[in-house]
């Protein structure tokens, strides 16, 4: 495999070498430089919605601007400031907006503390309104890009946006895999297995799934629908999944 060219850049006065094509945020994280962000996950393409990863850059040609580090590829001679005064004041307003949106989110509270923000000047939303969802769309993007079923998406526009299944009804496409639950940065999606039943609760819609029992250990380990899906895309038989992964090893 052809190796990408290396470029030299400076992040917060540290001179670094990085592979061309990587984003500033990835390079910073690889080098233990903290940039806050809520809508990124290595499993999916960057999206640029939360804006928290905003940084100040100066290009080799001397052009200064603010960019979202999750979307801006590193380049030769780039100078990056991750926490200038200007950046800090924008981030402060951003986190204050989130504090008002999701007053019961511990993740947001913790992040605010880390950014040195104590209070928000904006009236708090009722906690049942947004239910910890910050509309970063990580769940919907994972569902589309990784799982490949596009069961959930962002519906409505602007301030009325919500994450939901089509028509807020049980989705025929959802396989109950729970990937959305794992990627949600604010724990806004819940998943609970009880006996042979799995329940997935998004902020504004929910679904139930029947689980398959492992023939060896007897535990309910995977939704039937997920088996159908895996069998279909891999061309295997649904019967191949009668034994759970742990018992197979």
């Amino acid at each position: 495999m052809k190796k990408n060219k290396m470029v030299t850049l400076t992040i917060d006065s540290r001179k670094l070498q990085a592979e061309e094509g990587l984003m500033i945020l990835d390079v910073a994280r690889d080098n233990n430089i903290y940039i806050p962000s809520l809508c990124t996950n290595e499993a999916v393409e960057p999206y640029g919605a939360c804006r928290l990863c905003l940084v100040e850059i100066t290009t080799a040609r001397g052009r200064e601007r603010l960019v979202t580090s999750c979307l801006y590829p590193v380049e030769e001679g780039l100078t990056v400031k991750t926490n200038s005064e200007r950046i800090a004041s924008v981030r402060k307003v951003l986190i204050q907006l989130l504090m008002a949106r999701c007053p019961d989110s511990e993740v947001i509270q913790d992040l605010a503390k880390r950014l040195g923000v104590e209070t928000t000047p904006f009236p708090l939303e009722d906690k049942n309104k947004n239910k910890k969802c910050i509309l970063c769309a990580l769940c919907a993007r994972v569902c589309q890009e990784v799982v490949g079923v596009s069961a959930i998406s962002l519906v409505n526009r602007g301030v009325n946006r919500q994450l939901a299944t089509p028509f807020f009804e049980p989705s025929e496409a959802c396989i109950g895999c729970g990937s959305c639950v794992y990627v949600c940065p604010t724990h806004a999606i819940a998943m609970e297995d009880t006996g042979d039943k799995r329940e997935v609760r998004w902020p504004h819609s929910q679904m139930e799934f029947k689980l398959r029992k492992c023939k060896v250990c007897g535990s309910y380990w995977i939704p039937e629908r997920q088996i159908e899906h895996i069998a279909q895309v891999s061309g295997t038989s649904p019967d191949d999944y009668d034994v759970c992964f742990s018992c197979r090893e």
């Binding site: 999206y47 640029g48 919605a49 939360c50 804006r51 928290l52 924008v90 307003v93 951003l94 907006l97 989130l98 008002a100 949106r101 910050i134 509309l135 769309a137 962002l154 409505n156 526009r157 602007g158 301030v159 009325n160 946006r161």
Partner: peptide, 10 residues
């Protein structure tokens, strides 16, 4: 506002 990014939407 389309609602994608936080500062514009909120």
């Amino acid at each position: 506002s389309c609602g994608k990014c936080l500062p514009c939407r909120e």
